[in-house]
Design a protein around this nucleic acid. Structure first.
Lengths: 217, 217
DNA sequence: ATTTATTTTTAGACAAAGCTAAAAATTTGT
DNA sequence: ACAAATTTTTAGCTTTGTCTAAAAATAAAT
């Protein structure tokens, strides 16, 4: 499995997260910042290897083989992110690009030993679940802040957008994993949300609220 | 700098270790398990980039730029090896291939934080010195066991061959970094060396003795 | 000092992965 | 339902790094 093939498989895996249908060529091209024609070429190769199911113009789905392979890459990515934050003192907005490289290191033994060294973490620094060694992913129950109702309370358990810009913005707002939030009001005009956080009231834009996951309590 | 270019630069760096003259095309091909013609091609590219000095048929030398680049790769390799042994409990014969992949991870910040996390180690698990962040390497004074004189004593501080086969053989002999060795006798017939180790007398072949470094005391 | 052997380089091909531009299929809009 | 717009695929080219086989240069040997 080449570096590039791994990147494609992972991209398809991540795009399949909430989607039932086949993933479109363009969606993959977008996600990977490449051209649709390149995607078509690669998909054919992956189909030949039995990693994806593909019929022309019908989009692509992961085959079981491809799904577990992808989950293992994601496992590596998230374990390395956890390592970077917990052991090397990186911040949550700095780790993605480095983990993007580390996720391709091949040794199974390495990743199992790393997992043990980290004491078997369940989620990465952005709250995303770490697949187990067989590629199974625990379902985390969480709702978007944007869909929580007035009066509800919750703990921040994840983010949808984990770009460094967004994460640094959350730092500025003092929003972090584990923080408790109460929804005081929702403004119908622009869908902004008034919340209470650390005994302060702050207003959160709809866009921001749509990228924060809560576990309601 | 591509993966492949990094591999070549590192190979040339390691081959230049004890050699003054230019490194031959064949030597590089041997070291990297590739063909001489491929080496010639790559050397030209590296020369174009100012990383090596090259005149046809004259072998190749690292330019200063190439030397420090290579030293940084070696730094990364050896720091990762140290991490694998000290933190993840790998044995010294298992770490080379994994470090071979890890050494290509790009982030400077990563390697400085790793260095701090490991508490600034000076040598890797095989006794090889870890270059500093600017690519300087401390000269370790050490002699081959094969060249030590009868009656001398020393501490094992390194190995020349760090193949897993050799390292596992040393494990079997109970020879490890830090062990004290006394040279009891040298056999002129086959250049084998009789040593005392842990109050036992054992005989070491010339080949083995030629791959163990001592610091005499 | 030539011939022989070895080493190194060149020339030409190939596979991987990407791109552009054009063609084909599908979807959308009226 | 059919023309227009969009998406996807194909065809052909490029770059990177590799290889084989042949040619050129250097080193070794008698």
């Amino acid at each position: 499995m080449t570096l590039s093939e791994e990147d494609y498989i992972k991209a398809i895996f991540l795009l399949s997260k909430d989607v039932e249908k086949g993933i479109s060529t363009n969606a993959i091209a977008m996600q990977m910042d490449t051209k649709a024609s390149s995607v078509t070429d690669m998909i054919k190769k992956l189909a030949d290897k039995g990693l994806v199911h593909y019929k022309k113009y019908q989009g692509v789905r992961l085959a079981e083989k491809g799904r577990t392979y992808a989950a293992k890459i994601v496992r590596k990515h998230r374990l390395w992110e956890f390592f970077l934050v917990e052991k090397l003192n990186f911040t949550w907005d700095e780790v993605h690009d480095i983990a993007e490289e580390l996720e391709h290191i091949k040794s199974e033994q390495l990743i199992e030993k790393l997992d043990a060294f980290l004491d078997f973490p369940r989620v990465d620094p952005h709250g995303d679940p770490i697949p187990d060694k067989d590629g199974n992913i625990a379902k985390v129950d969480k709702v978007l802040l944007s869909s929580a109702k007035k009066g509800e309370r919750g703990i921040v358990v994840g983010v949808k957008d984990s770009s460094s810009e967004f994460l640094r913005y959350l730092d500025k707002l003092k929003i972090a994993l584990g923080k408790e939030i109460t929804i005081l009001n929702k403004e119908p005009f622009d869908n902004s949300v008034l919340i209470e956080l650390d005994s302060h009231k702050i207003s959160i834009s709809a866009l921001t609220a749509n990228n924060i996951y809560l576990k309601t309590i």
